[in-house]
């Protein structure tokens, strides 16, 4: 019963702030609601016994990504910040499309008969994750490392190059 109450509180927090992200007209407020979305997802992870992932979620998303996005907005958005997150004309058919996607997923999940394995998740999840990451999945792990390096270098290059050509013209 307590678990259900916790789930309902987290779900309301998550979906409410996600709806605010797509409905608020000020992009800065929308991004502040995104931070709330990421924290709620971390809470859901804790409910699902994924403690390490919850910490990673808070550090990477609520810490890194949100601050990056806020800085991006503060540095580039110059005009009309109060009207900066409006919808375009495609929202008329976007609403039925995404509602249909949700209905298909929800009906499929509701009609399915789940037979969960009634085994609890082991408590020390990091001791089970580390051998998986460093033995079975070591090649994707290294590929992800290379991907991060290449992407960060590319991001620096992209931002710098435009500034140079802008100065020249």
């Amino acid at each position: 019963m307590g678990e259900l109450i916790a789930f309902i509180i987290l779900a309301v927090c998550l979906l409410g702030s996600a709806l605010l992200v797509v409905t608020l007209r000020d992009i800065v407020h929308a991004v502040l609601c995104v931070i709330l979305v990421f924290f709620s997802v971390a809470g859901i992870f804790i409910m699902l016994n994924a403690d390490f992932l919850a910490i990673v979620q808070v550090v990477v998303y609520a810490g890194g990504v949100s601050i990056l996005v806020v800085f991006g907005i503060m540095t580039v958005q110059r005009i009309d910040i109060h009207n900066s997150n409006t919808a375009n004309s495609r929202f008329i058919f976007a609403i039925p499309v995404v509602f249909g996607v949700f209905l298909v997923a929800a009906i499929t999940a509701a009609r399915n008969i789940w037979t969960p394995a009634n085994v609890p998740v082991p408590a020390n999840d990091i001791q089970h994750l580390a051998p998986l990451l460093l033995e079975n999945y070591v090649i994707p792990f290294e590929a992800a490392a290379i991907l991060l390096t290449v992407a960060m270098t590319g991001a620096l290059l992209l931002v710098k190059e435009v500034k140079d050509s802008g100065n020249k013209s």
Partner: peptide
């Protein structure tokens, strides 16, 4: 959550949104 995100991808004007 996926549906709300998909709505944002289709219908938002701002690139950061």
């Amino acid at each position: 959550l996926f549906a709300i995100g998909a709505y944002g991808v289709i219908a938002k004007k701002n690139i950061i949104a």
